[in-house]
Structures are given as structure tokens and as C-alpha cells.
Design a protein around this nucleic acid. Structure first.
Lengths: 344, 344
DNA sequence: AAGTTTTGCTAAACCGATTTAGTTATATAT
DNA sequence: ATATATAACTAAATCGGTTTAGCAAAACTT
């Protein structure tokens, strides 16, 4: 069976008996502007509909230099947090007439560089990136080359690059205050080794709140390596729970919280009797765990949609100079894992 | 700062002092075939490298070439099962020099149709699709138009369309046998309303195994609607557990299992004492739940990579007529939720 | 009635690559 | 010495749109 030829603009033009130019003008809604006769315009539109014409975007884009393609680089699309973001980005992008090309950097600098090159060579009109540790220079170069670009989830405060992310400071401030209100004092934090701003902000939110409450002496921060999280997490939690006798643990990411819960379960640590726990980002695990886990909820809809909006603005209006900075507000979803400590 | 113009083929040609034709030929590795002098070929390649030339894929594709773009349509990229597949498809595609464009159909026929059109209009070289209920005609048309196409996770046995999916029959056969071996007899199944083959196969695997074990009288199948799963699941489970007194429940998808666990938890049903449970596809929830949940593991790596392999074969060799059918083998991961029933 | 404006439409360039059909110069054959 | 073959390269068409410049006919001025 032969591949059916798609109806082209020329086909419609021939059918009506006019030039392709006229058809193009009419179908782009510029009939008035070009003083095309009303009758003629209607006839063209009718014929195009009848012939089931749809424009070849590739041809259109070749002329216009645009692909209506947005590149999305996350660290790992199979991470539910990022796939949730991907879905929101997809939806908003579709609404605005764009399609999303995605790639996973695996938190790797070399990959990031390669993926950016590949996506640019595919002709994406702009990029939404979750930048990985150490990618500041790459991002700066990309921005300097005037590629429409928005960072999401993480950002580099020193760069003039637009971003859409959580108010991370407030997230741990909320969390820490909540735990303190619940009667906890010896509150520890588990993050991972990175110089990335989003994590540093979360750490600062915790530290400031602890200090403000006069609990500075209890500040304890453990950092695990992202590569063999499971093993390191075990020893970190062993130290915190068994040696340091902490009363509560704040996990700085969803993955850390899930891994932490695995380990705590294996260690037969009771939550919150032995230690209270707060996680990060929604996860079915938190709701189905016994007890349910308290966590910070990010307004993903907002964060994702904003990123697309900013990017498309840049693509369309070339407002590349303006640095759009959007910090969305976290919410604390309280479960049973951070219940009030019984005064003893 | 002005956006630097991308280097075009013509720029390279001018720089070397030859025609664009020659540059095109050399860079496409056809120098020998067109008897281009070795010296000249080397010079062109060197200059192209120095100028950091990369071909404009839009132009290339317009001419009738390829975009090295693969379209992936899943039902929902934010569903961890599909984002896991997406990641594997991405990896394999990248290895073969392709980039992935994704879209979510939301199990909707209209969306599916629209997304296919959009992806084709973006010039994807081929499509990997998780077809939704009722999409058989759309898929048939697509296949008939000779678009390289592979179905994944689900398939239409009546169509000559290649696919890569689980041996679904064997999945529930394994599950049911396991439960029977553990001493369960009154085993029910919870699926959703659909005519899709993958679910029908799973149902058949259960029925056949029950019948073969002489437990036909216990066969009970409940189907919930995918739209308000939570509400329907509650009533379905209420009937199964409280009225029908079933001993074990097999959930036919990951989402059903997770939702089911929510409901069972709310109902304070003990697992496996009151009712045993088996889920589908790995999920952190299953491992962190108390008790851990037995589930069917799909070899996602294999399923995803196969789909890409088949598709790229079709794209490259135009082997559109050959129907590649790959069924990958399920594994049963045994947790505590299906522990041996104490004889009473 | 001649000049000007407006109306309604089209030819042709263009985007950046690929490909077909040549062309020219040199080498080989007869 | 003329015909033929081969080597090395190029002009121009092509993909399917968009856009610019411009043309012919009708309508309007003065």
C-alpha cells in the first residue's frame, strides 16, 4: 500500500484555481489585511476544509525558523517528581501549541552538555532545564548565546537566567517550625552532597529556624551521596537514631525520604514514637505508609506552567534580557509521622 | 547581544570555496560514491568541524529525509510505570542516535488522534504508542499509511502492527497458581472496564488457572471505571471483602493496586490475615507497605528496548510489512501480602 | 479624459538542506 | 587523432510553506 500523499497548499490552490499565495494568506487569517475578496476567502476556506488540508509544519518552520518544539532536560524522567513536572510542562506547552522533547541528564555534567547540543541541533525553540551540580558555566554559555532558556526546580542566583522554583527556604522553615511546635527539639536534617542552591536554601531555612528557636545546639546535618544512597543512608540513620538520639528527621528530597523510610523500616524504628519524620514532595508511599508521612507539598502545577509561560514569552517576544524569577510557595501536608511528642 | 546565526551548509561551502552540493555529499559520507577527491573531502570535513557546523534538521526533513526524532505516546507520563518506560525508551533511542518526543493521551481517543497528527507534523521518523481503548481504527490507519509504528505495553492481535509487551496471560497464571499453592481458593480479581487485549489476557490467565485447579466456582471479576477509581474501588472492595468473603485479591494494574491498598487501609482490613493481595508492577509503595506486597514484575528494560529496536529497524530498512511480536516474561516477586494461609 | 487610488490577486524569492542531471577537464581506447 | 570513459565537481530543481514586491483592472479624482 502506497503512502498517501498529504494534501499540500498547492493542491488546495489548484483545486480552487488560485495561487498558493492567496491560500496561504487566507488560511493564516490575513485576508482582510491583504484585501482578499470575502467570497474568495470563504471559498478557499471551504475547499481547504473539504480537502482536509493541514499545513506541513516542517515547511512552515523552515521558513520561520521555528519548530514549536520545547526541549526539557530533567535529571531522570523516571523519577516521579520529574515525570510529574514533565506532565505539567507537556500540558501547558500543548496549550500554547508546543510539543516537548525530553532528555535525562542523570545529574551528569557531560550528559547535560551533550543533551543541550542534541536538542539544539533538533531545532528546539527553547529549553527548560533542571540544572545539575556544576553546570553553571554551561548554563551561562547557553544563556549568553541567546537561546531562550528557563531553569526549573533549581537555579543559579548569580546568573541572569530566568527560573521557576519552590521557595525552598520557606519549605524547611515551615517544616522546622511545625516540628518545634509539636514539641521536638533535637531535630536533624538529611540532605545530599551538593553545592546547588535549592538544597542550600533548604538547609538555611532549617538552620535559621532552629537558631531562632534557641535550638542551635541541636543542629545536625547529614549528607549522603546520590550514587549509593541506600548504603550511606543506613549508616547515617544508624548514627542519628542510635547514637545521637535525635527526635525528628527532615529529609530534603522525595528520594531521600523514601530511601530513609526503607532503612528505618529495616531498623525497626518506630515512627513517630522513636523518631518523627518529614518528607519532601507528595508520594503515594507517604500516604500508604504506617503512619502516614508529613511532607512538604510543592505547587507543581504552578511551577511547571510558569516555566513554560516564561519560556514561550522569551521565544515569542525575544525578551531574553529580562530575568523572570518565580518562587512558588510550599505547603506542609501534616500526616501522623510528626505527631505531637508526648512530654516525658 | 544578537543571536548568532547558525552556520549553514552554504557558509561552509563558501568558506571552502566549493558548492553546497559538494559539502552535502561529503558530510553525508558519500564522497567515494560521488568520486570527490580525498584531499577535498578532508578539507571540507575539517572546515565543517572548525565552523562547528550542524545540519538544520528541519531543512533536511523537509527535503524528505529524516529527523532522528521518535514520537512516544503513553497514556500519562506522570504515571511511574510509563515514565519508567519512557526512560528506557529514551536511553535506547539515544544509543541509536534518536531523540524522543513524548505526549500523554489520557486514555482518550480524540487526544490520541490529535497527538499522532501533531507528532507526524513535527516530522517524527516513527512512533511508539501505548494504544488506548477504542484506538484500533486509528492505529490501523496509521499503519496503513506506512508510518513506522510499534505498540508497547498493549496490542491489537487482529492488526498487523508490531508490538512489544508482557506475556500478560502468564502474569496472572503465575499469580493465581502462587495464591493457590499458598492455600487460597476464593480468589477474586479487580480490573477495569476495557476491551483492551492486555487486560483480557490477564483475565483469561486467571480464569484458566482457576478452572484448571477446580476453583471455577470461585471466579469473581470486578471492574472499576478508570475515571473515579477511588470511589468505585471502595464499594467493589467492600463487596468482595465483607459480602463475598474472598480470601485473596489480584489487582490487574499498578494504579488499581495502589488505590486498592488505600481503600483496604481505610477499611482496616488486615493483609494477608483478612485478605491476601497481589499487585502489578514494581512500586516503592509495595515494598514500604506493611506487609510488603507481592507483585508481578515486568522486564521493562527488555520491553522498552525491544520496542525501540523494532521501530528503528522499520525506519531504516523499511521493513514495514513484517509484524514483530515480542512477549516478555513476567516474574512474581513474592512479598508478605500473599503468605500461606493458615489452615483453619 | 487623463491621472491617481484602490482592489484583488500573483510571481518569485526564500528558508537550508538533498538530489538529479549535467559540465568540464583529463585519461584512456581505438 | 578522434572517440570514449572517467574523475571531480556544480547548477538547478525540490520539499511546502511565507513574504515581499508588484501587476492589472476597476474605481475614483479633478
Amino acid at each position: 500500500m502506497a503512502k498517501e500523499k498529504r494534501i499540500s497548499l498547492k493542491d488546495v490552490a489548484n483545486s480552487v484555481g488560485v495561487s498558493p499565495t492567496l491560500v496561504s494568506i487566507v488560511l493564516n487569517g490575513k485576508a482582510k489585511q491583504y484585501r482578499i475578496a470575502n467570497e474568495m476567502a470563504e471559498k478557499v476556506i471551504k475547499t481547504a476544509m473539504e480537502m482536509n488540508y493541514s499545513p506541513n509544519l516542517i515547511a512552515r518552520n523552515l521558513r520561520g525558523g521555528k519548530t514549536q518544539l520545547i526541549g526539557l532536560i530533567v535529571t531522570d524522567i523516571s523519577n516521579p517528581f520529574y515525570s510529574a513536572i514533565a506532565r505539567i510542562v507537556e500540558n501547558r506547552a500543548n496549550e500554547l501549541g508546543y510539543t516537548v522533547v525530553f532528555s535525562s541528564s542523570d545529574e551528569d555534567l557531560g550528559n547535560t552538555k551533550k543533551l543541550i547540543d542534541v536538542l539544539l541541533s533538533k531545532g528546539v525553540d527553547g529549553l527548560i532545564i533542571v540544572p545539575c551540580d556544576g553546570s553553571e558555566d554551561i548554563i551561562k554559555n547557553l544563556h549568553d548565546s541567546n537561546t531562550p532558556l528557563v531553569l526549573i526546580d533549581r537555579n543559579f542566583p548569580d546568573l541572569d537566567v530566568s527560573f521557576s522554583c519552590l521557595n525552598n527556604y520557606k519549605a524547611t522553615e515551615l517544616t522546622t517550625k511545625h516540628l518545634i511546635e509539636q514539641g521536638y527539639e533535637n531535630i536533624a536534617l538529611v540532605g545530599y552532597k551538593t553545592g546547588m542552591n535549592h538544597i542550600l536554601d533548604r538547609i538555611k531555612g532549617y538552620e535559621d529556624t532552629m537558631n531562632a528557636a534557641g535550638l542551635g545546639k541541636y543542629i545536625q546535618e547529614k549528607k549522603v551521596n546520590l550514587l549509593n544512597t541506600k548504603v550511606e543512608m543506613s549508616s547515617v540513620l544508624d548514627v542519628l537514631v542510635n547514637k545521637k538520639k535525635v527526635e525528628a528527621i527532615i529529609f530534603l528530597t522525595n528520594m531521600l525520604a523514601v530511601t530513609g523510610l526503607y532503612c528505618l523500616k529495616e531498623m525497626n524504628v518506630r515512627i513517630p514514637e522513636d523518631v518523627a519524620v518529614v518528607g519532601f514532595n507528595r508520594n503515594d508511599v507517604f500516604n500508604l505508609f504506617s503512619p502516614t508521612i508529613t511532607y512538604i507539598r510543592q505547587p507543581l502545577e504552578l511551577i511547571g506552567a510558569q516555566a513554560v509561560n516564561i519560556l514561550v514569552d522569551k521565544i515569542n517576544h525575544g525578551e531574553l534580557e529580562i530575568k523572570a524569577m518565580t518562587y512558588s510557595e510550599p505547603q506542609l501536608v501534616v500526616g501522623a509521622s510528626s505527631l505531637r511528642r508526648i512530654n516525658n
